[in-house]
Nucleic acid binder design. Structure first.
Length: 574
RNA sequence: GCCGAUGUAGCUCAGGGGUAGAGCAACGGUUUCGUAAACCGUAGGUCCCCGGUUCAAAUCCGGGCAUCGGCUCCA
């Protein structure tokens, strides 16, 4: 535990102390430090409300002011069990019982409060000067949904008030950029109660979607991919064959028709297996790369839906690469490069995670797995990526690399994924004819760069705070008429730019220029082109950039060139 | 799905057992205006839905749906 974690863990103890002083029948469970702060879970008949937080904070302040030292005491397991049994803390008893024999057991106290705890505290409560309680939430005991629901209180703590204020300001900034808020303000998308978890893309959001879609499509042209389209609805037999039925059935939408059971596809892979198997394949065809922007449905639990990041209907920029085992390393290198070039284009930084075999849950041959894991790790190493290995986190069918993207305010999002699959080629008995004229089994790589369009757009909205670069902006420029007199040239200018392929509109409303500027600013349109008497006379426009920068009036065509340069997709195709 | 909160005009939000409110947006008019909000007026509501209590429910109670903060899960 580092010093900050010790501070936060100590804050959790102080919070538990305060809670129990106010509600003595709140039972203690656990209270660890987390990345952004700390929490403590209680089993309490009193439901904690947001209003209670202030009360708890106040009492915490008194405990901090009293500057109680944290004191450690080592005891035996039996003593610990007896101690917490006598104090009527059943969860602590359960925790003590679970500690393996021979392991050191300690109690940590400050003032009159004592908790079973392996330690990691500051010297005394006085060190916890900068803290704040943030929210209450439900959480299952031991993180298992079959267990009792506890009440969790989240808080955060820092060594000084300045750091705390910075952190809280960052949370405010995150709220300001929230894609749900910005998406509404900018008219990008909406939802309706009659289609929970399914997005309605408004015209401006559709521009974003299509721009990303076209960008991917154009990029892949140079990368040896072919695009395919596959059905949305399949007989459930397909999912039996793919093996998804066993674990995925609950997450699928299904229905009956003429005594057959059908399901909406939750992923594209099985249909791509069918496509592969539709023809006899030669080693000369490999790697064979199918990409598919197909619509997927997953029946996610109602309580998990959230904005664009967790939906029931979404589209992946999905692809499956069929290849010979000896082609894996090279293909991995190409894929990692592709991820890098995309994320670079958006100014996103990222970190790779290599997930390896879970010995409890895998199919296939251990030697094949180990070889594949080594290739994955070698591939990220060769590309000089920062990465970490996540042991046992692989899917049952193969190891994978996931990419965590960090956005403009430091939050992490999981988007791209590259997954090896030894299972589906078996289940669909895929083959290719080798150079030796014998039949061989290909390997499959699943990969997505954006992840899903929905989630990636959410990420971009928050990353850019709605101020999209020109190439993505739903409206790239707006022509503003100073007054009614300038209507004709305003229309002409907008039409000329539109004819050159730019997304342009105009504002002829009965408002003063200042109001038009304000409106365009709030819509975060990259360029405002002002047209008044001078511009009409000289047949020029006076561009004002979104950042407030004022450019000299210029010929329309000169502006078109400028906009054209900025509108180019910042992605090197090769 | 589970715990907690929320749901009032297109949006942001006040109000609250006795005729439903504001600002912005919309619409009409006046104004013709030079870099972040001109002025006047008009219209707009199943107060999420269903049921109950009550002389009377947007308000209180129950159920449902959706959204939000989390948990579990995940692109």
């Amino acid at each position: 535990m580092n010093e900050l974690e010790k501070l936060r863990h100590s804050a959790a103890h102080v919070m538990a102390d305060a809670v129990q002083r106010i509600w003595p029948d709140a039972k203690l469970t656990i209270g660890p430090p987390i990345e952004q702060g700390f929490y403590y879970d209680f089993d309490s008949p009193h439901p904690f409300s947001e209003e209670d937080l202030a009360k708890i904070e106040e009492l915490m302040g008194e405990i901090v002011a009293a500057d109680h030292p944290f004191v450690e005491r080592e005891i035996t397991r039996e003593e610990a069990i007896a101690y917490f049994r006598q104090r009527n803390e059943p969860y602590k008893v359960e925790l003590a019982e679970a500690i393996p024999a021979g392991e050191r057991i300690t109690l940590h106290s400050h003032g009159k409060f004592t908790d079973l705890c392996r330690g990691g505290h500051v010297k005394s409560t006085g060190a916890i000067r900068a803290f704040k309680l943030l929210s209450v939430a439900g959480a299952y005991w031991r993180g298992d949904s079959r267990n009792k629901m506890l009440q969790r209180i989240y808080g955060t703590a820092f060594f000084d008030g300045k750091e705390l204020r910075t952190h809280l300001a960052q949370m405010e900034e995150a709220k300001r950029r929230d894609h749900r808020k910005v998406g509404k303000e900018l008219g990008l998308f909406t939802f309706h109660p009659w289609a929970p978890g399914a997005v309605f893309w408004l015209p401006k959001g559709t521009v974003l979607w299509n721009t990303l879609s076209d960008t991917m499509r154009r990029f892949l042209l140079g990368q040896g991919y072919v695009e395919v389209k596959t059905p949305l609805i399949f007989n459930l037999g397909l999912w039996e064959q793919s093996g998804h039925a066993a674990q995925y059935r609950e997450n699928m939408f299904h229905f009956q028709s003429e005594e057959q059971s059908f399901g909406l596809k939750p992923m594209n892979c099985p249909s791509h297996m069918l496509l592969y198997a539709a023809e006899l394949r030669s080693y000369r065809d490999l790697p064979l790369r199918f990409h598919d922007q197909g619509v997927l449905h997953r029946n996610e639990a109602s309580g998990t839906l959230s904005g664009l990041t967790r939906v029931r209907q979404f589209t992946q920029d999905d692809a499956h690469v069929f290849l010979a085992p000896e082609q894996i390393s090279e293909e991995l290198g190409r894929l990692i490069d592709m991820v890098h070039r995309f994320y670079e284009a958006f100014g996103l930084t990222y970190e790779a995670k290599v997930s390896t075999r879970n010995p409890e849950k895998f199919i296939g041959d251990v030697a094949v797995w180990s070889d594949a894991e080594q290739r994955l790790e070698q591939a990220v190493k060769d590309k000089g990526l920062t990465y970490r290995v996540e042991p046992h986190e692989a899917a049952f069918y193969g190891p994978k690399i996931d990419f965590d993207v960090t956005d403009a305010i430091g939050r992490k999002w999981q988007c791209a994924t590259i997954q090896l699959d030894f299972n589906l080629p078996e289940r669909f008995a895929l083959e290719y004819v080798g150079e030796d004229n014998a039949r061989h089994r290909p390997v499959v790589i699943h990969r997505a760069i954006y992840g899903s369009f929905e989630r990636f757009i959410a990420l971009l909205i928050e990353h850019y705070a709605g101020a999209f670069p020109v190439w993505l902006a739903p409206v790239q420029a707006r022509v503003l008429a100073v007054s009614e007199k300038h209507e004709a040239f305003t229309r002409e200018a907008a039409a000329l730019l539109a004819a050159r392929g730019f997304r342009v509109d105009f504002d002829l409303s009965n408002d003063k220029l200042g109001a038009k500027i304000r409106r365009a600013q709030l819509e975060k349109i990259p360029y405002m082109l002002v047209i008044g008497d001078k511009e009409v006379a000289a047949r020029t426009v006076a561009p004002r950039a979104r950042d407030g920068q004022q450019h000299e009036p210029m010929e329309l065509l000169a502006f078109a060139d400028r906009l054209g340069a900025e509108a180019r997709i910042p992605l090197t195709t090769s």
